[in-house]
């Protein structure tokens, strides 16, 4: 119970609840339509009426950020899940098989880890075409290597546990041992790691759409919102700063929660 009272955890949880509402019911938080101009007020500074100001087409930036949450976060969650599942399976195979199979898999993982994740994602997006889904696949693939490494280490540790030996003396089949005993016990660190990876994925997804590989206009997305504001950075800096700050706060919140949940193990 005590860890819930930790102010960092509490604040992080609060931020994430608000973010979740933005993902599921953006209409509850956004005061305006994200696609329509709100009159003639172009490039207006933040005010009570327009919390984050308005953009060059007189759209309410706050509303666009709220509506953008869905695409940005879904892509990040998809990326992390893909990375965890794929990496987990690869690690499971590698750790169980051992020998040459393990060696071959781990060398491929080494190569993947040698390429910076964002570059790997760029290659994937370039070959699959622009869009949120290909960004998610690209970012997910970039995270696969570290997930596989962690899973493999876990499997190799669990494989030598006495209860695995006990399972063999009971006469359980190998796949049964693998999926009923090894995998559930090896997965805990993967779950903990996924929560920290999620924060990185949000950043990576935003970075890629900032570079223009993501959702195409007028669909709002956090990275592209920051990018849109770039041309007005001297006259209307809030266009970039506001969505940028939102990314920052959400990433910090995910990290803050992940660390507290993970550190409690």
């Amino acid at each position: 119970m005590r860890r819930l009272l930790n102010p960092v955890t509490l604040l992080s949880a609060l931020v994430l609840v608000v973010t979740l509402i933005a993902v599921i019911w953006p209409g509850l938080l956004a005061p305006y339509d994200p696609f329509d101009s709100v009159g003639d007020a172009r490039l207006e500074a933040p005010s009570a009426a327009h919390l984050f100001g308005t953009d060059a087409l007189a759209r309410d930036v706050f509303s666009r950020v709220v509506y953008g949450a869905r695409l940005s976060l879904l892509a990040a969650v998809l990326a992390t899940t893909a990375g965890a599942v794929l990496g987990g399976l690869v690690g499971l195979i590698s750790g169980t098989a051992g020998g040459r199979v393990d060696f071959a898999i781990m060398r491929v993982i080494d190569v993947m880890l040698a390429i910076p994740g964002i570059l790997l994602a760029l290659i994937v997006v370039a070959s699959l075409g622009f869009g949120a889904v290909s960004i998610a696949i690209g970012v997910g693939l970039g995270a696969t290597g570290s997930f596989a490494r962690v899973m493999r280490a876990q499997v190799m540790r669990i494989r030598n546990e006495e209860y695995i030996e006990a399972a063999r003396t009971m006469g359980l089949r190998r796949p049964t041992i693998l999926f009923r005993h090894v995998m559930p016990n090896a997965s805990q660190p993967i779950v903990a790691m996924a929560s920290t990876e999620l924060a990185l994925a949000i950043l990576a997804v935003s970075a890629l759409s900032f570079l223009g590989f993501g959702a195409q206009p007028p669909t709002p997305e956090w990275g592209s919102l920051v990018s849109d504001g770039r041309q007005f950075i001297a006259t209307a800096p809030w266009l970039s700063i506001m969505p940028g700050s939102v990314i920052l706060v959400v990433v910090l919140a995910v990290n803050g929660l992940a660390r507290n949940l993970g550190g409690n193990r």
């Binding site: 209860y163 030996e165 006990a166 399972a167 009971m170 006469g171 559930p184």
Partner: peptide
């Protein structure tokens, strides 16, 4: 061998370690 294991069962030294914690 797998079927035969029913005739020989093992009790290990570390009681908690020989049981799957989950």
């Amino acid at each position: 061998l797998r079927r035969f294991r029913q005739y020989i069962q093992v009790v290990f030294q570390n009681p908690v370690g020989s049981l799957d914690p989950r």
